[in-house]
Structures are given as C-alpha cells and as structure tokens.
Simulated assay, not measured.
Amino acid sequence: MFKYLPPLNEHNLPYPDTIHPIVVHFVIAMVLFAVLCDFIAYFTKNSRLYEVSWWNLAFATVSIFIAVIFGQVEAGLAEPYGNSNAILNIHTLLGWSLSGLVAAVTGWRYVIRSQSRPQLPIPYLVASVMLVGLVLFQTYLGDLLVWVYGLHSVPVVEATREGGVL
C-alpha cells in the first residue's frame, strides 16, 4: 500500500512546501477584518460594512476547515521534538476548536443578518473579541512551531533524519 504514496521531500512532505500556513493566513486575515468591520459599522452606523463582515466570516468558515485538514496532514508528517510536541498538540486541539467556534460565530452572524437588525448585539461583539483573542493565541503557537522549533524546515528535517534531534 505504501508504494503508491508519493515520496517525502526535504520538507518531509509529499508536496513541494507547506500549504497549511498559506490557507491559515487567509483565515486569520478574514476573521480579523470581519471583526474590525463589525466594530467600525457599529460605531459609524454604516450598514454596508456588516455585509463585508458577513462575507468575510462566511469565506473564513470554509477556509478554516481546509486549513485544519492540511494542518492535520502536515502535523502528522512533522517530527516534533522536545517541547514542540506539547505545543503542536495544543495547536492541533485549538485549531479544531477554532473551526467549530468560527462556524458557530458565523451561524450566529447569519441569524442576526437574516433578522435585518440595524446593529449587532453587544454579546455578539464580545464573542467576536474573544474569537480574535483565540485566533491571535493560535497564531502565536503556530509561530513558535515554525520560527522557534523549525518544523518542516530543511535543516530540522535533515537533523531529524540523521538522528541529531531527539
């Protein structure tokens, strides 16, 4: 069965480079921009920004599931060492949780949108701020995995293959 799988490259991946960071940066930008638009619309009473926010959340919801799928594949092919294993586990758990939370907030936003309310309720705005906090924490964990521990970077993959990293 394994002979039908593509060989792993110098990044320990079956494709040229990591895809998860590309998709996840798209999600991060859309969630942050959606919340920013909601707050600007709330204070300026510009209802067109609510539409911008809604569509950003809708596309972020679809995109986060794609990011989680590629994140699972790439986490499974990573060879974590030391503390990176614990950070990767937390990052994975929070990624799955965030996919559900983003979907729930988008659903809530859809209900509010379908009621044609002139303004968003305060509890929704509070939940949006909490969502931003979780997204920023998740981004921090991902940065640690890439920039501190170097998962899927060529030098770390080579050192792991040679037995230099435990």
Rank of each mutant, 00 (worst) to 15 (best):
I66G: 03
S63Y: 02
T44K: 05
I69C: 07
E51P: 02
A67K: 09
I69T: 13
A67Y: 06
F59L: 11
I64A: 04
F59M: 09
T44Q: 09
I40Q: 04
I66H: 06
L49P: 04
A58H: 03
N56A: 08
V73S: 15
E51A: 09
F65T: 10
V52A: 14
K45V: 06
F65W: 11
W54N: 05
S53R: 07
R48V: 13
F65V: 13
L49A: 09
F70G: 13
F59P: 08
W54Q: 10
V73C: 14
A58C: 12
T44V: 08
W55V: 09
Y50K: 06
I69W: 01
I66D: 02
V52G: 11
N46Y: 02
L49H: 04
V73R: 11
N46L: 02
F70S: 08
S63M: 03
A60C: 05
G71W: 03
E51N: 09
R48H: 15
A41Q: 10
L49E: 08
V62M: 15
G71Y: 00
S53M: 13
I64L: 10
Y42M: 10
G71E: 03
I69K: 04
Y42T: 07
N56F: 12
I64M: 03
Y50H: 08
V62E: 02
N56W: 07
K45H: 10
F65A: 08
I64R: 00
A58D: 06
W55T: 02
F65K: 06
W54A: 00
F65P: 11
E51S: 14
S63E: 08
G71I: 02
F70W: 15
W54E: 01
T61K: 03
Y50F: 14
T61M: 14
T61S: 14
A67Q: 02
Q72A: 13
V52R: 04
V52C: 15
V62C: 03
V62F: 09
I69P: 03
W55I: 00
L49M: 14
V62A: 11
A58K: 11
G71N: 08
A60T: 01
I64N: 05
F70C: 13
F65I: 12
T44I: 10
S47V: 09
Q72L: 15
G71C: 13
R48C: 06
L57I: 11
S53E: 00
E51W: 15
N46T: 04
A60R: 01
